[in-house]
Amino acid sequence: MARMHTRRRGSSDSDKPAADEPPEWSDVDADAVEDRVVELAEQGHSPSEIGVILRDEGVQGTPVPDVSLVTDKKVTEILDEHDTEPEIPEDLYNLLDRAVRLHDHMDENPTDYQNKRALQNTEAKIRRLMDYYRGDKIDEDFSYSPDIARELL
């Protein structure tokens, strides 16, 4: 798939092996995994951080290779069931964070035209994502501005 804001093509990544059930060495209880996911979310971790922590540390000493294989639910679905889902989706949050950092950089370096273009591209992605999430994950009347983004973070 081509990239959004350049003329180059994207690079291909390796895929995880297709599996219908967890590996033999990972015999973790689904309820224990769900409890650990909720616990990590309450500590303030994002869904992707939760997946990395479960992969590295595991539950009860056993690593969890893929939460969806063990529980038949994604991390965000588990968080949604337990009402611990973040206020804004993680991808939108990361873009808002990047926009705030780029705005701070542009305030200090007003002639950095390359980062000015990066800021324009990031804000365009934010607006597209907001249209996608509007009404479902974020309010209908929510609009992007650098000041609002700074307050949300």
Rank of each mutant, 00 (worst) to 15 (best):
G51V: 04
G51Q: 07
G51A: 03
V52S: 03
V52W: 00
L54S: 03
R55P: 00
D56E: 13
D56R: 04
D56Q: 12
D56V: 09
E57N: 03
E57F: 06
E57W: 08
G58M: 02
G58A: 05
Q60G: 14
G61Q: 05
T62S: 07
V64I: 00
P65Q: 02
D66T: 03
D66F: 01
D66M: 00
D66H: 01
V67K: 12
V67R: 12
S68M: 10
L69C: 06
D72E: 14
D72M: 04
D72Q: 04
K73R: 10
K73N: 08
K73S: 05
K73Y: 11
V75H: 04
V75T: 08
T76L: 15
E77W: 06
E77C: 05
I78L: 08
I78W: 13
I78D: 14
L79W: 00
L79V: 09
L79G: 02
D80F: 08
D80I: 06
D80H: 08
E81M: 03
E81W: 07
H82Y: 11
H82Q: 06
H82G: 07
T84G: 06
E85M: 10
E85D: 13
P86I: 06
E87F: 11
I88E: 08
I88C: 10
I88F: 15
P89G: 12
P89I: 03
D91I: 10
D91C: 05
D91R: 11
D91G: 07
L92Y: 05
Y93L: 14
N94A: 13
N94M: 09
L95G: 10
L96Y: 14
L96C: 13
D97I: 00
D97W: 04
R98I: 13
R98S: 12
A99C: 07
A99M: 08
A99W: 13
R101E: 13
R101V: 02
L102R: 13
L102E: 03
D104C: 12
H105R: 11
D107C: 05
D107F: 03
E108L: 06
N109C: 07
P110I: 04
P110S: 13
T111V: 10
